[in-house]
Design a protein around this nucleic acid. Structure first.
Ligand SMILES: [Mn+2]
Ligand SMILES: [Mn+2]
Ligand SMILES: [Zn+2]
Ligand SMILES: [Zn+2]
Lengths: 150, 150
DNA sequence: ACTCAAATGACAATGATTTTCATTTTTAAT
DNA sequence: ATTAAAAATGAAAATCATTGTCATTTGAGT
């Protein structure tokens, strides 16, 4: 009884039901290798169970975001993208965005270096702005190898 | 002949004309203390010159973004916000977002510490992903003093 | 089986952003 | 100063992601 994904408990505690549409959305997110839009998810979900509506996809994502299970970001494309949050206590990951082709790479080799640095920054912010930092995001922008030519 | 703002040359080089609507949008951004939406800018612009249309505001922002003079971000509000990019070679700044009230604080006391750290990370990313990093963004999320109660 | 809140899906509504197109403004050349 | 071509503009319509409405279905607990 220990092969539940990490977010299972969080969903249960919240009182929300783990319905089939929700399971399907979660499964799609789990197996996704890219950062999906709501419509991407809807299309895949619809294949698995044609009765699912786009509205439900949106509502499910909203719920999962509120529970801290899913993360949403917008890159100026006019639509949001979603991904499963990394398991708490794990490393976390950041993103590299190619400014030419808009490709996104997940970057997860967080060094100790980085962890120490971030906790120092968070201390500083706490003192200076009296802000309690809960999370952070780092995005790196550049040009990928393909877009620079060989 | 040296009191032109830093972006003046960039605009000229690009061949774009510095028209009155563009000057107005730039002046609004320069004097803004918050991160404005396109409509915010339009309302202010309209006060200064009622003939200006919202479409032109959008087109101007698009141009300025392409030239690297303006930065756009979206925080899940369903609309984008804009700000003038920091003068190149300057310190740059990051953002603190309060998850409760959505207030945004500009954080610009970048330490040497941080500069060194980031250049190390960029080296690492360059080696590992063959990505040429041009820029980065850091966002910190937390809860501000007011929203935690005194 | 029964109850009732929670969840769902079809559809309409909203609202930010983009497109279209006719008109005006700017620039460079005559 | 005229003129011609290109760039910029504004009003209005179109697009499209996201949200709201409401009638219906589902599920956990009795
Ligand atoms: Mn990711
Ligand atoms: Mn800022
Ligand atoms: Zn690329
Ligand atoms: Zn707050």
């Amino acid at each position: 009884m220990k092969d539940q994904p990490w977010w299972y408990g969080r969903l249960k505690e919240s009182g929300a039901r783990l319905t089939e549409p929700r399971e399907i959305v979660l499964e799609i997110l789990r197996s996704a290798r890219e950062h999906l839009t709501a419509t991407d998810i809807y299309i895949q979900a619809h294949r698995m169970k044609p009765s699912i509506g786009l509205t439900t996809v949106y509502r499910t994502l909203e719920l999962l975001i509120k529970l801290g299970i899913v993360q949403k970001f917008e890159l100026g494309e006019g639509k949001a993208r979603f991904e499963l949050v990394d398991k708490p206590g794990g490393e976390g990951h950041h993103h590299l965005v190619c400014l030419k082709c808009r490709k996104i790479i997940d970057y997860s080799d967080i060094s100790n270096d980085e962890k120490e640095f971030l906790s120092r920054v968070e201390d500083r912010l706490k003192k200076k702005y009296d802000f309690k930092i809960l999370d952070h995001l780092m995005w790196f922008y550049g040009v990928c190898r393909e877009c620079r030519g060989s």
